[in-house]
Design a protein around this nucleic acid. Sequence first.
DNA 1: CGGATCGAC
DNA 2: CTATGTCGATCCG
Length: 866
Amino acid sequence: MDDMEKVGNSSCNDGVLLRMGLNDNKAGMQGLDKEKINKIIMEATKGSRFYENELKKDQQVNQRIEKMMQLKEKITEQQLLKAQLQVDKLVIELEQSRNLSSTIVHIDMDAFYAAVEMRDCPELKEKPVAVGSMSMLSTSNYHARRFGVRAAMPGFIAKKLCPHLTIVPLNFEKYSKVSKEVREILTEYDPNFMPMGLDEAYLNITEHLEERLRWPEDKRRFFFKTESRTEEDKDVTNMSAKFNEGGYSSSPVLFEDNTPLMDDHPEQRDRSVENSVIFGTSAEEVVKEIRFRIEQKTQLTASAGIAPNIMLAKMCSDRNKPNGQCRIPPERRAVLDFLKDLPIRKVPGIGKVTEKMLKALGIVTCSELYQQRALLSLLFSEASWRNFLDISLGLGATHLEKDGERKSMSTERTFSEINTAEDQYNLCQELCRDLAQELQKEGLKGKTVTLKLKNVNFEVKTRASTVLSSVSTEEEIFAVAKDLLGTEIDSIAPHPLRIRLMGVRVSGFLSEEEKKYQQKSITSFLKSGKEIGFLRLQPGKSNQEYFTKNSETSPRGSFFDKKRAARQLSRENLSPNETVGKQLFHDRKSSANVVEETKKVTKLQNSNMCKIFTCPVCFEEQSSNNLEELNRHIDECLSGTLVKDTMEISKNDNSRENTLNFLPQFKNENVDECQKNKPDQLAGTDQSASISDNSTSSSTEKFSQVISDKPHRERQPSNLSDIARNVCMKQCLFPKRISQDNEDHFEKTEHAEETSSSCFFEAKGDSVLVCPVCNSEQKTTSLVSFNRHVDVCLNKGLIKELTEKKDFPSKTYNMENSNTVGGLSRGQQCTNPSQGAKRSGLRASQSVSKKAKSSNSKHTIEMFFK
DNA sequence: CGGATCGAC
DNA sequence: CTATGTCGATCCG
């Protein structure tokens, strides 16, 4: 927010602590000093799940730094010199393009929310105040800041820092109203001004300055407000003085400022009428006028920066806050002087991570940033180091670009732990509902739906799916989101997902042009059923292939989504005892859908307005005046056909199924090619690690998964394959190098047992693999042979399972009685829900680990979710 | 394209 | 007890 100091760590070693505490201390006598503040924060923080996650993130940053430093070591003098030349060539170009002709202003309301609340509640005026909740504060007044109370700090910690703190809840409507009042003023100086949130804005006053020169004096005259809005606010002057008890002044005390309003036109002050003031024509005067007017109108103060570009203006407004302003004259020298000792952390776009990384290179100030430009060009991405260069030269945008079209829309919610699938689905649907409503307000439809989850350990993950036709309604979005959610629930089943946040986002919006085009093309596509018929009848090309090929252009198309949905269903049918609730949930939903669909269809058929299309899947004529209806029909049709077809195909080759189930192939459109081209890399490929002992039937294999996942379609009760697949889906089965620079938040390599609830397999050798079924070591020369072993093993297990345990009670399943099922299931299914998820999960993971180690396993297995 | 991260308000 | 919500950009695979 506006005037909050960026909180950064100023020394390398104590990142997490300082990050959450104070960087500097403006504390007066009434406040706390930095040490006390950090101590209190630490006491309130340590041991919490939140803190553990902060530590983890910090370690990841440290690893990034380490990697960067290694890279740095390898840089030769030659390379550096060459880089220096190249960068300096660019510097000359940039220098030549320097544009100092614009006058950009950044306006920043002081402690905005808190100030509004204080204005409206005189009781608060001399107290430390924060706005937000016990969970999270949005801002605090300057009094509270002396105690270390800051934006983005949870209220309960703020209370420990400052027991007298008054926390007032957010009232956005009020802030919006005030913000609007301010904007009404700003627009007079730049009708194209750019608001950044409720409390900040950029203005380009270049034109205004020109015009202003021709203005009569009266147009620059403003009157003090003499009447108060309310009875109790009669004495505006007095109130302002009290309000700014922090030692900072406000109008009319503004005149006592170090920078008097009339400084560049002192003669005009004499001619000012009583109760009015005339502002000059300089940029400073304009900005003082703006601030004066803002305060007169809203009783709130603002800080401002004036500079030749946006970046400088922003940094400038920070300099004299609160209730101050600062200008960088449009001269190169002045710009560079301003930057000289400026900490890079003050630069917009440089956050705590970048700060830390640069600090590791000995860069703290902007001039140091410039000095290291050659090195930076070798260590960072093009975009990054160019940005660094711009920063260190003081270059930035000199005009305000209109906001482009929105690129995404999302909604997310934090809550106390939710861990039942039913609640999660309901919540998801609710989010979709809210989002759909907002989307429709703006008439937007998007092709990508992203689900965001944060588990109770604060680990965040997102899962996205892009569908062929764009979505905007609750039902459409939820159809995609629930699959994503189902996949996640599956992936750690039978452990519950324990989440504290869920979010849904829609992106990939169509532009207006694309919207029209799409309508047309779909219309014509549907009219010509023949083309599809041709493809369908082509010898050697099954329907599946046709659709698979198509979905390659959109790899995460609805077809694959359905597969995921199918998998979800299958899992839930695995253990009837445990998943009754979920099944009910599903049944309820699907029957509701049927009813709904039926209604719609009859409604459509009764309509005279509808057009007739040929469904490209079932070839039946469909009457509809609504493309969405048709899409839905086609979707249903598509999944029906696919399931039917794959049933027939896989009947002929049941023996293959178990192998197939080891294919986590959702992302892998062409297993054959993958196998051929980079067999050695299979292990390392993300999510698409696949094993196939046959390079000719991948298509068939893929689809057999669909059938095997459909429990309600006479699927074989193959717990094993599901278990195995689940593990595969976790990318755990085969040797996977844990990526060093981009670690999955949900994977742990080192301290999973102590600090996290993640699940992973890590292979430390390549030639010895532990069979996930029989748990024995297999020396293999190729993944193919290993796969064959697993295949055989799996079949054995299946047979045993079928003969001995027809009713597989996964609820009471435990690893002791499942030698044949072995390691894999232990990793994934050791749960015993009735025993309290936390401990049993952890214990199981430890015992698995122990066992793995004792048997000299090359794999280590950790559990998901304590 | 999907997923994670960073940064801003 | 109790650590936000939304958005865009970027990087990497």
